[in-house]
Nucleic acid binder design. Structure first.
Lengths: 349, 349
DNA sequence: CTCATCCATTAAAACGTGTTAGCAAATATT
DNA sequence: AATATTTGCTAACACGTTTTAATGGATGAG
């Protein structure tokens, strides 16, 4: 049969099964000559360790779970790429779960991860409730929060300061003269949305203005381009356009831009538009999008490194709440130039 | 301790461990009253089945592997979303591997998947060599090819006809009058690139012209926007621009577009441009991109369904090689209108 | 009404495969 | 020669699954 076990290797190499295991897991404890011989037999026989048996006995696996809110969003894809890269470097496999913003789906995914006895979970939670995550911890599954602050000091998290981000975006709009600013945002229960809104309000206050008057929140159920475009249509139908719109992510901004351009609204002539995340396509869109950049790939990479460090060196591991700072990127959609070498005049729109 | 085993549940429910297993796997074999009682205890105790133990004994897991060539490409992300969706519906977890076009990395990923004893693998292989995949099959791991034709009749695959796609793209360019057409393509060893090129050549022949004269292949090492832009710069430096460019995917096209616009080249005025895949952003880019649409999400979904059907019903399963047909989408970059409601005149560029 | 038979349930025990603690044997060190 | 060190073996073990067997009550024949 296809499947060759550690015992087959042991017999063929003339050693005991335990020795094979040692060659695989603590090679330094086995004499070089034996080690070589065993490795040769392993490759001759095409032996592949049975991960489940290993996990069962050792009590932990070589897999981590990744739960993201929207696999269709390049922001999360970039994170996933960073995670996959870092995990793969250390021989860990990544089990991917897409919660699609649904708490129920997230819960189902976490159950699957618990069953798989993943070593740890990287998660961008759909809400603030720490119960599910604490339940995982109690099961011995480490949790590192991605793009969400840890709710307890003995937990790692990697975030980007969204309050700063919101402030950067709206300060920029205010500087450009906008005094009526729409804030297109996803569910208010999403921390990212709330924080960016908070930052927006602070920017307004800092400019000596009243957030209540200046900011106009528009809440929609999901942060996709489709909803962005829908929001544009509704805004146009209402007949009352703000002078600028801050979108809680770039997908919303892309959709909003599309909706506005289709209706003949000039961007940034009639309305300035700024997004969030600075996904790759922000620079390439019809009117290049101003945005707030986050170190996405790094986010995934560092979160994974923290998680695996916590798993592999539980005693020396120091829990960290890493906070990155976002960065404003000005492009056409708020009056910046398209691109250094871009031939189009600045007043394009 | 946190971990509660099937025996704990058995004790508490006053039955034997085997009965618990039956409740979980063949509920119909256990009396309703007992079943209810067991289920209640399971939820009381917060019992979660140990997937590894289950896999070890049962001989197969509830996971499938997914190996894609570029997780940063929305084409593959859409596929992944379809896979995740279909797998999750049936209670399967997805282990994600990103080969990033590297055969070595792909091999490492497949090894990890083999160790995890995944039930099956969905793969967009980096090359045509069937050896690695046959090795997996011999290990009892089913393989379904994604966006690559099966190399044997007893294997499932889901593809889109790339020859047709190439033909559609280039016929369109020829109809628009182009007689010198660049074909910006990734490594020639990639089936997709080769097929799309073949389709391009056939379109030229069908038009009574000579592919050698009309088509000008430009091969680059990877199909990313960065390389697309680089290709644009090299093309401009060479001083000899074709009348139209067919890019083997949309990322290349986005990069190429960027490079051309930056240099002041008008699209489609000076050069027509068409991409492939019709990723979401194609419609939203600076000059909206004509492209060849593929049913991406479906691709992932159907491949997963085929795989799981093969796993769960090995006797009744009929192997299938599903081939979808691509669809031409004309937009601004080849002289189409930006969008039905778009205010910009057609001669924009 | 009694006893044999059968079906539905549940119990008992073996199993799959790699890991690890504890120990024995072999070799090196002083 | 005695002790320390290295190396490798033995055996127990993790935990859900599955096969086989047992139990009990129901059915039916006599």
């Amino acid at each position: 049969m296809g499947t060759v076990s550690i015992r087959d290797v042991a017999t063929r190499a003339g050693v005991s099964p335990g020795t094979i295991s040692n060659v695989l897991n603590r090679p330094e404890r086995v004499a070089p000559a034996t080690r070589e011989r065993v490795l040769r037999v392993i490759s001759e026989l095409g032996f592949v360790r049975h991960g489940s048996a290993s996990t069962l006995r050792a009590g932990h696996s070589r897999t981590v779970g990744l739960s993201v809110m929207d696999i269709g969003n390049p922001f999360f894809t970039d994170i996933a790429a960073g995670v996959e890269e870092a995990a793969s470097e250390r021989g860990y496999a990544v089990i991917l779960g897409n919660s699609a913003g649904s708490r129920a789906k997230e819960e189902r995914n976490l159950l699957v991860l618990a069953e798989q006895r993943v070593r740890g979970v990287l998660i961008t939670p759909t809400d603030d409730d720490p119960a599910r995550l604490d339940a995982l911890r109690d099961r011995g599954i480490r949790v590192v929060l991605l793009d969400h602050p840890a709710h307890r000091p003995d937990q790692c998290s990697v975030t980007v300061n969204d309050i700063t981000g919101g402030r950067l975006a709206v300060s920029h709009l205010l500087e450009r003269g906008a005094r009526r600013i729409g804030y297109l945002t996803g569910p208010g229960t999403l921390r990212q949305c709330a924080d960016r809104g908070e930052g927006a309000a602070r920017a307004v206050t800092a400019a000596g203005l009243d957030p209540e008057t200046v900011l106009e929140p528009i809440e929609i159920p999901a942060m996709t381009a489709k909803y962005g475009q829908q929001a544009a249509e509704r805004l146009l139908a209402s007949g009352s356009l703000p002078e600028a719109i801050f979108c809680a992510n770039d997908l919303l901004a892309v959709g909003m831009l599309r909706g506005l351009l289709q209706a003949g609204v000039r961007v940034p002539g009639d309305i300035s538009l700024i997004g969030y995340d600075d996904i790759d396509f922000a620079a390439a869109s019809a009117v290049s999008l101003s945005s707030v950049r986050q170190p996405t790939h790094q986010l995934g990479r560092i979160a994974t490194e923290l998680l695996l460090d916590e798993c592999d060196n539980p005693d020396t591991h120091a829990h960290q709440q890493v906070v990155f700072q976002p960065e404003l990127v000005v492009r056409e959609s708020t009056g910046g130039r398209r691109d250094p070498a871009d031939p189009r005049p600045e007043e394009t729109g």
